[in-house]
Design a binder for these strands. Sequence first.
DNA 1: CGCGGAAAAATGTGATCACGTAGCACGGAA
DNA 2: TTCCGTGCTACGTGATCACATTTTTCCGCG
Lengths: 240, 240
Amino acid sequence: MNIPVAEAERSDSLEATPSGRGSTRERVERSLRHALLTGRFVPGRPVTLRGLAQDLGVSPMPVREALRSLAAEKALDIKPNGRVQVPTMTPERLAELQQARLMLEPELALRAAAKLNPGDARALKEIDDAIDKSIDGGDAETYMRLNHAFHFHVYRAAGSEVLLPLVESLWLQFAPFMRIVYGRVGTAALEDHHKEAIAAVASGDGPALQSAIASDIRGGMKLLQGAGYEAVPDTNSTKD
Amino acid sequence: MNIPVAEAERSDSLEATPSGRGSTRERVERSLRHALLTGRFVPGRPVTLRGLAQDLGVSPMPVREALRSLAAEKALDIKPNGRVQVPTMTPERLAELQQARLMLEPELALRAAAKLNPGDARALKEIDDAIDKSIDGGDAETYMRLNHAFHFHVYRAAGSEVLLPLVESLWLQFAPFMRIVYGRVGTAALEDHHKEAIAAVASGDGPALQSAIASDIRGGMKLLQGAGYEAVPDTNSTKD
DNA sequence: CGCGGAAAAATGTGATCACGTAGCACGGAA
DNA sequence: TTCCGTGCTACGTGATCACATTTTTCCGCG
């Protein structure tokens, strides 16, 4: 099960995240979460406690807690012998993730619609413009970060303390795999429905926003359906 | 383990969980999870790291990780100063929890139906008979344990790696509050739909099972709607 | 040249310690 | 009697250490 990826240098630009607020564990967890969501962690890749600690320049202790936290959200997998790795994807799990997203996220969007205002529509448009640029540029990492920002700008507005964490967990689960697929087929084939969503927000049309989000999920996940479950590409696509 | 277990046991209720397998952290987490699900932790009550460690006869270390894990599942709340407490319930959060349950659990039941066999129906009937007894006896803690066993016997059959953890998180969130309500209004007023569910399992009728679970959720949560958000009762159920 | 086993390195786990801080009670002053 | 400051206590956090176990390396034997 050893992957021949060269682990020459450890610095995956993890500590590049400038967020210096909060406790050390908080910073570590935020850093890991961000790395997961932008796909800097490859599924199947083992994650060692001391290695991460060294990368981040801290002791293994806060890393331990952060990993445990992420594992509880199913963003990481802790094998019975304690080794931590990014979960590998299976077609079944991906299908389940899509269905779970379709159950929760459109509902969240519907609730958010009532609280979103034209200012939010402008903010979303700004994000979406940047997304279009990143798609053209083929910058998968930036795209994923912005796409996440777009969706969660909507979801957060719902003010849901229950649904939002569930959806966050789902994103953490499919993001690493999504990144791999983007690395293979590129980001050009992406069809999102952000424009419809923005229009719905601007006009305050809840059901339209709900439907746009649902379509967006279907479009985004469709791309992932038949790609790359088997192994990690030995072409090291983790950095840059 | 070179730990001198010369400590006088402060509480029998926590380490009473017989599961002695696995690592210490695993046992601690299982113990806490069980305590949460059966309502032995009162919402709003502060949970201290060292206190719990002493109760369980271990060092604060595994407790720390277990708490962090539970907190990631929203079963515990870590305040900005680091203090841990069982989350308090609000009407809004309870309504969200019910709606989230209704989104996920009937779907899970529908998927489980295809894999449940008459043997499962018999097992469920056995659990349900015990539930009836515990309701008559007014034993809220036993009722909650069995009710959880009943539902998750069904849900687990679905074999879902994605939906099941989400539902587990939801249960951990409303269970402590549910326990308080039972302590106030008793368990006699409970109306469950387990009989319908068992019949549906026996006949392999998926939609019927789905509908029975949905009705069961509505019936169970309705009881909680207008009760006891304000303060925690002084009845200290864990120790002292 | 290939295989196997032993040595060595690395990993997770749990315990203990040091440190900064937040609560809290006690006591003195108004 | 009430209010406020000061000291004490307990807490969470992070680091370091010790240990058992697993993984990897590597050397010798077939």
